[in-house]
Amino acid sequence: MRITTAFSVPFLSLILVSGAYAHAPSEHRKVIEKSSCDPAQIKRLQREAPENDPVMEAIMQQCAQQLESTDRSTQRAEGVEHDEHRDQQMTHDD
């Protein structure tokens, strides 16, 4: 009788305690999200925001790096397109 009690009490306590700490795993998972700084989205937010809006200012600061790199890659793409166009014209002229 004593042995049964000695085993069952800690076992039951363990079950009860584990139930108290059980949360959905999503509550504890650490997900590091990156800002979704889509240039079209930022432009729309800019249009909708009032002047000198600190929220918009924060968004621009947050997205500055990403927007800059997007601009650079757009310019690079445009440059390549321009070069290709020029090459094509030169070949055509020859």
């Binding site: 590091i32 999200e33 800002s35 979704s36 600190p54 929220v55 968004i59 947050q62 997205c63």
Partner: peptide, 22 residues
């Protein structure tokens, strides 16, 4: 104080950490 006026997309952008460290 700004939170009640934020849209989900504004919230997502503002609250994301710049560096990858938690």
């Amino acid at each position: 104080q700004k939170l009640p006026d934020l849209s989900p997309e504004q919230y997502q952008i503002i609250t994301a950490r710049k560096d990858d460290s938690a």
